[in-house]
Design a protein around this nucleic acid. Structure first.
Length: 219
DNA sequence: CACCAGGGTGGTT
DNA sequence: AACCACCATGGT
């Protein structure tokens, strides 16, 4: 299904995820959002460079402390906030990021105000927050703001490389390709990211059970 | 002790 | 925008 060789087409993208979906099953409820957008934002920040489990435990700690809100992130002492999210690792940086994010939301009139803009503007606003980079910005844009973008992470790139239809090297092109392939369907883009991560997780688990060390992201 | 986990920042090219 | 070195913590 590749046209001319290197590089994935929108059809390739659809084919890859259709195939993955038939292997792994539909990925519904993949990103927990019990308490709505603010919890999604918390998860996106807390999961950085950490296994999801740690982020989930940290979210529960925030919830129990009634600190799952931008208001709490702005008013709680930063070291207190850090204690709450410690299990997620890099807790000082994450406490700082949560606070900075809350400040950003407040500056735009709250979460609704922050997200009341087009996709690109929302991404730009998020990227202006210290501690929020491309992946986290896209995750929040896609799962909390519910806008059409795609999280181009290492898993997604590995997935396509493995199938010999690599995504464009340029981040914005890779993202645009996926969005075009999904025809801007947010739910589909969310599931695609879920599938890519689940696929990556399974491969890693499989590789570790047979001691064969072949993992892509070296250094 | 080394390496991994659903990255980010700041500085260069 | 891509590339690099460096940073950040708990688990296994």
């Amino acid at each position: 299904l590749t046209l001319g060789g290197a590089g994935a087409s929108t059809e390739d993208v659809r084919a890859v995820f259709a195939r993955l979906r038939s292997e792994l099953g539909p990925q519904t409820e993949w990103w927990p959002q019990r308490d709505g957008a603010i919890e999604v934002c918390a998860g996106a920040i807390l999961v950085q460079h950490t296994a999801w489990h740690g982020a989930a435990v940290a979210i529960e700690a925030l919830r129990r402390a009634d600190a799952l809100s931008g208001q709490a992130w702005l008013t709680l002492p930063e070291d207190t906030l850090g204690e709450l999210v410690r299990v997620a690792g890099t807790y000082r940086a994450k406490a700082r990021t949560l606070r900075a994010f809350a400040g950003c939301a407040e500056a735009h009139g709250g979460l609704d105000g922050l997200f009341a803009a087009d996709t690109n503007e929302v991404r730009k606003r998020l990227l202006a927050v210290r501690g929020i980079g491309d992946e986290t910005a896209d995750a929040i844009t896609l799962y909390a703001a519910y806008k059409p973008t795609f999280v181009v992470d290492a898993y997604a790139r590995r997935l396509f490389e493995r199938l010999e239809v690599p995504l464009p090297a340029r981040l914005d092109e890779a993202r645009a390709l996926a969005v075009a392939a999904a025809e801007g369907d947010v739910a589909r883009l969310q599931e695609w990211h879920a599938l890519a991560v689940e696929d990556g997780r399974r491969r890693r688990a499989y590789a570790s059970t047979r001691g064969g060390g072949e993992n892509g992201a070296k250094r």
